[in-house]
Simulated assay, not measured.
Amino acid sequence: MIVDDQQATVAFLYNPAAYGESGPVEAIETHISRIFLVGQRAYKIKRAVRLPYVDFSTPALRLAACEKEVELNSKTAPGLYLGVRRITREAGGTLAFDGSGELVDAAIEMVRFDQSKLLDRMAVGGELTPALMTDVARMIVRYHRGAPEVHKGSGSSNLAGVLAINEAGFATSHVFEQAEIKAFTGIFRTALARHCELLDRRETAGKIRRCHGDLHLRNICLFDGEPRLFDCIEFNDQIASIDVLYDLAFLLMDLWHRGFPELANLVMNRYL
């Protein structure tokens, strides 16, 4: 649910003069963010929403989320995230970047990269190769090895919590009918019950870590010639504090869904 008016912020960010540019401003919208592309930069803001799994309802919360996103993603996409810009209301009511006035919003400043280098676009173009996906798998291995362990209950209770958040999100998304949500939620929970002991052993072994949380092809890009993970979950630690194989499964499912089971198999084997 949208809870704050961001019309002034959006109008400000659509104005190329705000960035000292004269060229056009392009925008990309998702359900919880907007990205404005201008010149060699991209500026990402959080939508002013309050949902079961995320709260961006105030400027202060959006600023904190932007700062956390830069902190987390700078580890896996060095050079891509440049910092956070405060959007303030100055004398006379005009908006500015990093002024002395009241905080109105916040934007993440990033290097603008070629959208054709997103791995989902490369998949459509038939450009995913075994060599590239091997590099991706090895990067994920390094990332997971360095991610902090999370010990806040059993492995099965951890996944049960994630399923509860997912269920609440489905209920407010209007993507699925209630009968569909009930059906696949039941399937998920049946599978969880079947694997409780294994999940608990994996938690004891340190396999639950602060992960990416949304590791599909669209959140991996080629940047400076290297695969980079970006746009990890910053707004809800519970969603991202998961078993490392649950994290990897996002990528495997995406590859399988797009018709690349052999690459999913390769990634899994290189990861192991």
Rank of each mutant, 00 (worst) to 15 (best):
residue 249 A to Y: 14
residue 227 P to Q: 03
residue 185 T to I: 09
residue 205 A to F: 03
residue 236 N to T: 03
residue 106 A to P: 08
residue 170 F to P: 03
residue 222 L to K: 09
residue 117 K to N: 15
residue 98 D to S: 08
residue 109 E to P: 04
residue 115 Q to D: 11
residue 184 F to A: 04
residue 63 L to W: 00
residue 94 T to D: 10
residue 58 T to S: 15
residue 245 L to M: 15
residue 77 A to Y: 01
residue 125 G to T: 01
residue 3 V to Q: 08
residue 52 P to R: 13
residue 178 Q to D: 11
residue 202 R to H: 08
residue 270 R to N: 09
residue 224 D to C: 08
residue 23 G to L: 00
residue 151 H to W: 09
residue 91 A to F: 11
residue 168 A to H: 05
residue 70 V to F: 06
residue 208 I to Q: 00
residue 167 E to H: 13
residue 255 L to W: 05
residue 212 H to F: 02
residue 91 A to T: 13
residue 235 F to R: 13
residue 151 H to T: 14
residue 189 R to A: 02
residue 43 Y to A: 01
residue 133 M to F: 10
residue 197 E to I: 01
residue 163 L to Q: 11
residue 215 L to T: 06
residue 267 V to W: 05
residue 208 I to P: 01
residue 137 A to L: 00
residue 166 N to L: 12
residue 20 G to C: 09
residue 237 D to C: 00
residue 212 H to P: 04
residue 15 N to T: 10
residue 61 L to E: 09
residue 78 P to N: 05
residue 20 G to L: 08
residue 232 C to S: 13
residue 51 L to D: 11
residue 77 A to I: 00
residue 11 A to P: 00
residue 162 V to S: 01
residue 168 A to P: 00
residue 127 E to R: 12
residue 73 N to G: 11
residue 177 E to I: 05
residue 270 R to F: 00
residue 161 G to E: 02
residue 222 L to D: 09
residue 93 G to T: 03
residue 196 C to M: 13
residue 151 H to L: 13
residue 233 I to H: 04
residue 272 L to T: 07
residue 164 A to V: 02
residue 228 R to Q: 11
residue 3 V to T: 15
residue 137 A to K: 01
residue 191 A to C: 10
residue 141 V to M: 06
residue 17 A to Y: 04
residue 91 A to E: 15
residue 90 E to C: 14
residue 262 E to G: 01
residue 67 E to N: 07
residue 261 P to M: 08
residue 125 G to S: 06
residue 130 P to K: 05
residue 34 R to N: 11
residue 263 L to M: 03
residue 81 Y to A: 12
residue 265 N to H: 13
residue 250 F to Y: 15
residue 99 G to N: 07
residue 14 Y to G: 02
residue 125 G to R: 07
residue 4 D to F: 08
residue 172 T to S: 08
residue 192 L to E: 05
residue 213 G to E: 04
residue 82 L to F: 10
residue 240 A to T: 12
residue 187 I to G: 04
residue 189 R to Q: 10
residue 185 T to W: 04
residue 157 S to F: 03
residue 21 E to A: 14
residue 236 N to W: 08
residue 111 V to G: 03
residue 100 S to A: 12
residue 163 L to A: 10
residue 30 T to I: 12
residue 91 A to I: 06
residue 78 P to A: 09
residue 261 P to E: 12
residue 45 I to S: 00
residue 61 L to Y: 07
residue 82 L to W: 07
residue 223 F to S: 03
residue 138 R to N: 03
residue 61 L to R: 14
residue 264 A to M: 10
residue 215 L to A: 13
residue 16 P to S: 03
residue 81 Y to S: 09
residue 241 S to E: 12
residue 171 A to T: 14
residue 16 P to C: 04
residue 21 E to M: 12
residue 117 K to Y: 09
residue 104 V to I: 15
residue 83 G to D: 02
residue 40 Q to K: 14
residue 29 E to H: 07
residue 213 G to C: 04
residue 120 D to G: 07
residue 264 A to L: 10
residue 106 A to R: 05
residue 8 A to S: 15
residue 126 G to L: 11
residue 108 I to C: 08
residue 121 R to P: 01
residue 27 A to H: 02
residue 102 E to K: 06
residue 127 E to V: 00
residue 245 L to R: 15
residue 159 L to C: 05
residue 256 W to V: 14
residue 51 L to Y: 09
residue 105 D to P: 05
residue 103 L to M: 05
residue 230 F to R: 06
residue 162 V to Y: 08
residue 87 I to W: 01
residue 148 P to S: 06
residue 183 A to K: 14
residue 64 A to W: 03
residue 193 A to E: 15
residue 239 I to F: 12
residue 135 D to N: 05
residue 118 L to S: 02
